[in-house]
Every structure is written in structure tokens, then in C-alpha cells.
Write a protein that binds this DNA or RNA. Sequence first.
DNA 1: CGTTGTATTGACACTGGTCAAGCATGGTGG
DNA 2: CCACCATGCTTGACCAGTGTCAATACAACG
Lengths: 192, 192
Amino acid sequence: MRKGLMMSYVLLDDGSRQILRFHFAGDLLGLSGAIYHESPESLCALSDCVVCPFDRSLLSDLMAEHPRLASLILVYSQIERVALTDRLAALGRTSAKQRIAALLLELRNRIRATDKSVEKVFALGLTQEEIGDATGLTSVHVNRMLRQLEEERLIAREGGRVTLLDERALARAANYVNRYQALDLGWLPGPS
Amino acid sequence: MRKGLMMSYVLLDDGSRQILRFHFAGDLLGLSGAIYHESPESLCALSDCVVCPFDRSLLSDLMAEHPRLASLILVYSQIERVALTDRLAALGRTSAKQRIAALLLELRNRIRATDKSVEKVFALGLTQEEIGDATGLTSVHVNRMLRQLEEERLIAREGGRVTLLDERALARAANYVNRYQALDLGWLPGPS
DNA sequence: CGTTGTATTGACACTGGTCAAGCATGGTGG
DNA sequence: CCACCATGCTTGACCAGTGTCAATACAACG
């Protein structure tokens, strides 16, 4: 993926949707779909996007000819795994407000990863229903929680833009850990 | 991992625990721990276990010298990813009873993968508190839901053993999909 | 036997869901 | 340009599913 915002999700047969992950520029998409006959998850663009499709048969060539790339893909898939486990812990063990706070922090950090100019203010290109489907809540309750975060002066909103007024307090309240530090790739051989 | 039952989990700083996954013979453990300075998840044995530790520096050698193995590791990590996303959808969008039913089915299927003799009856080596920490519930509520499943004649219990009385109905109720079919590895070159 | 961990059950509280209505907003076609 | 409509946001009243707390019953084990 080169540009834009996408999401991956699953639909349950009662019609409800669980959003698994939001995808930004630089993400590698659809690996799981390459493994199964029927992809276990769906992708959907949330803005204009640019992607680079590739044929999955090229994957095994790449694994054979570029072992360092292969290692990096493996590292990437582990980073994604950890992101999913963090989300799992949030859904299983934290309150609605905490989940939303964590999602806001996560989105800001990921946007910031490709646009260093972003600091406290950012546009989350999501409806409240999408936030709900990502956090396991209803859009109604998402609205209530956003309002509460606003009343507590932790965030501010106007239009589609959110401002993190007290990032420290937000992260503390949300039990949020920024994983995009603390990678240890010492075992990887350097670029050849 | 060669033998036994383990689990991976995270602890939140309010002391609560989210169990991420149960691990059985044949699983590859600790990859995520190899990537970060501080492992983002913990492992714990739930029975006597046999594992084969390996040095992570060997990983890059393996990637370079055995591309087919490298591909298989990547495939494995995608299978794990899908298992996590299924769990995510369960936690976010299904009821307590559904989550427990899905967990029972999942455990039975994974036990069955290494012991074909297992059919409807199996020993889940878990306390109700562990079931709760895996499904995002309290042990008290797990107990209530197990009782209900029992009253509905979907399962039976005695000692630590569970019997799936009506697997079909259970799977339907739980929205459960058995992913251990439908893999498509056609793009992988055959064993050399 | 005490001790410890687990299972079970009941009463009650609270978080978050449901339903319904009212507002904005922006796009569309006449 | 304006009526119209769809979509998303906001809010309130009420309800259901889970959590909390507490007490009891078991069983395994030293």
C-alpha cells in the first residue's frame, strides 16, 4: 500500500462487523488472503488509495532470492501480530472509554509515522460507527464516550478533527503502549 | 513446542489478564519475543511440556538457507494471525455464551489435530478463570454460561471433561468457522 | 485435619445496548 | 436556487447482559 487509508474487517452472519485493523501507507496487505482459498477477511478503502498489487506466486521466488526481505516480511507480520494482541487485550479487558482513547492514540501514532508534522491535531477519517466496529461498541456509545473524553478535557473535536489535549493522561487512562519503539532487530544481518 | 499445553497472555497494569492463545504440540512459539527488546507477551505452561528452544540468531540463517522453510514459517504466522482475528471478532461482536462455545470448539479441534481419537469428549485442562481470561469474561459468568449450555443440552460436563452433545448446533450458535481446512498452498514450491 | 484453590450460587450494581427522535450537513435533481 | 434526501451526529429513556461481592461447597494436598 502506497497511499491512503484502508481497513480490514470480518462480517459475522448476524450482520455485525468487526474491524480488525486500519492500514496506512507502507503496510503490506492481503497476506492472509494469499494463504486461504477464501480470504478470511475483507479490505475496504476509507479514502482514495494507491496500492501495488502483486502475484502471490512471486512470493516464493522472493523468499528464495531475497532472504533479508523474507526476514523483514516475517518481522512485519510479527509486528502486526502484536498489534492484534494489543487490540485483543483492549477488547477483552478494558472499558469503552479506554478502548476509544487507545484507538485515538494508535491512529495518531500511525498517521504520524508517515507525516511527522502531525502532533496533537489530526483528522480521523472515520465515522463513529466505524470507531464502534473497531472497538466492539455501538456508534451511540462511541458518541457518549467521545463526549465524556471531551468533558474531561482529554480531547477536543471540531469537524472531523481531533486534538489530543493531554496525551500523557490519555495514554495512562487507556493503558496504551506505543509499540513502534523497542524493536530489536540485532539478529538481522545488515543490508548487503 | 513438542508436547503439552501452554498459553500466551498479557497482563494489564490494573492486574487483569488477557489470554491470547493456547498452544499445542507443533506450535512455533515466541517469534514475537524475538523481535522486541521486551517481549510483548508472556508464555506459561498449563501442563508438563516439552519445547525445543532455539537461538534467534539462527533464524536469519534459516531464512537464507531454507527458503521453503521460511515460506512455511510465514504461512504459519498468517494462520496464527487469522486465529487472532477470529478471536478479536468474537470478543468484539459476540455474546458470552457464543464466545465460550467457540472456545470449546476451537480447543476440541486443536486437540483433535494431534490426537485423532478425540471426538466429542475431551479434557480441557483449564480453570473457569482461565476460560474467562481468554474470552474476556469473569469466572463467575463463565460458570453461568457453562451451566446454561449444559441445560440446553449442548454440552455435558463431569470432572474436567467436556462432551459436545450437539456440535452442529454449537457451531451454529457460536458463529464458529473451522479454519483448519481451506488452506491454499498451491503457490508454494513442492518439497525439494 | 487445616489449607488452598476451584466451582457454584444468589443479590445487586453498572456498563453498554436498544430504540426512537431530532438535528446538521452535503449532495442531487428539478 | 431550492426542495429533497441520505448520511452521520446527538441525546434521552429504558433495558439487558455482565460484573461485583459474598457466602458456601468441594476436592486435592501437605
